[in-house]
Design a protein around this nucleic acid. Sequence first.
DNA 1: ACGGATTTGTAGCGGATTGTATCAGGCAAT
DNA 2: ATTGCCTGATACAATCCGCTACAAATCCGT
Lengths: 240, 240
Amino acid sequence: MGPLPHILVVDDHVQIRESVTRYLEKNGMRATSAKDAADMDAKLAGGHFDLVVLDVMMPGEDGLSVCRRLAAAGAVPIIMLTALGEDADRIAGLELGADDYLAKPFNPRELLARIRSVLRRSSRGEPLAGKLAGRTVRFEHLVLDTDRQILIDDEQGEIPLTDSEFRLLVVMLERARMVLSRDQLLDLTAGRTAGPLDRTIDNQISRLRRKIEPDVLRPRIIRTVRNGGYCLATDVEEQA
Amino acid sequence: MGPLPHILVVDDHVQIRESVTRYLEKNGMRATSAKDAADMDAKLAGGHFDLVVLDVMMPGEDGLSVCRRLAAAGAVPIIMLTALGEDADRIAGLELGADDYLAKPFNPRELLARIRSVLRRSSRGEPLAGKLAGRTVRFEHLVLDTDRQILIDDEQGEIPLTDSEFRLLVVMLERARMVLSRDQLLDLTAGRTAGPLDRTIDNQISRLRRKIEPDVLRPRIIRTVRNGGYCLATDVEEQA
DNA sequence: ACGGATTTGTAGCGGATTGTATCAGGCAAT
DNA sequence: ATTGCCTGATACAATCCGCTACAAATCCGT
């Protein structure tokens, strides 16, 4: 987990903000607070956060609306704070993409446990995710230079990658040996959802293979999983 | 998206098991139930599951203990069902590695929402060849390269495997000397349940045998167990 | 802003794979 | 021996995927 996880607490009550941030900081986390949606946006824009704790009841933009926005962007996990017993809110929140909720008034220790639980989930799901930025990795006979967005072949020289080829390759390298559906790949590379006749990913895989597979007719780096998607079947190691 | 997500519901009450499984199935999931910890272990061993819904209060092995075991293995996400208001249980469950909990009595719609939420986080793809991912194993006169999805015959050269042949072989190698029913094999390879006239597995076994049996008329690697299924009857050892 | 070049998405053909139907052979029980 | 079921094998149809070709979109320098 590198440095301390950074939590953003969004609530309009000063008391709650302060007590929560203090409690989190006492328990090995970094905490920042925001008093409303606008404040939250400013803080999010200005730094990296691992999780947002979001109050449903807020003046200005509603918590559910904020939740929908954040979940759509998909960049950060969310825990919602709801009024006690408001089933409707809770279900709505989860369906909108919140990762968890907690009823107010809540036990701080339980909030901590839930934060840890969500963090554990999201880091488990993405083993190397995002960490490829600025690094150089080697796999098979190739070295990927993420800064220059090119591949370096041991034998031949540099192989330039187009934008989408690069994104696709990075996404797969970060999830080596995982089977990724076309939907997931399209979501991760382009941020959109696939229509029923969408062959976009097939096409990009085909183009990428031409550049990285020694024998395109029998691909072994990017393997096709029928009815499943694609899988990068090789080890990926860091390069000095 | 591959096949439907498969949920295992563990609870000692018949009513709850049945109503929950029925509700999940009506909402686009596959559900199986187990009545206690031992039953659960059997089901887990015999098929593939994407998530376990686990009651805390159970006769026999306690839910928290089961939760610790499963979380340590780390193979499958867990949602715990706790008695209402039992803060201690909830916190303990989360700290033991559960991915979420729900207080009983619960709203089925909320359970569904939580299941979807957990799956969204954790189902970011599964390893292709299970525990064999990236390994190379030897059995009889053959070596299986799981990365390249090919067999290497000591005498002849490489034997390419189709996707389903490969999945079937991997599943059987991982469970060498165990008798596997057609249902289990279909579940483990394709993630679906067999209809009454389903001869899919027979067919695939037949195809696989043609590629691996020295004498197809007298198969000795994959043995047929009449009224039982099939069994890979040979030792499997790791290859450098 | 314009025009050309590169990149990216869409459509469609053809090969490969896989599930279903069907028939034939074999084992077991009567 | 006969009957009934279970399994092996073949044939075929449906589906999936790779590839090419083309159209739309984007980029970039002037």
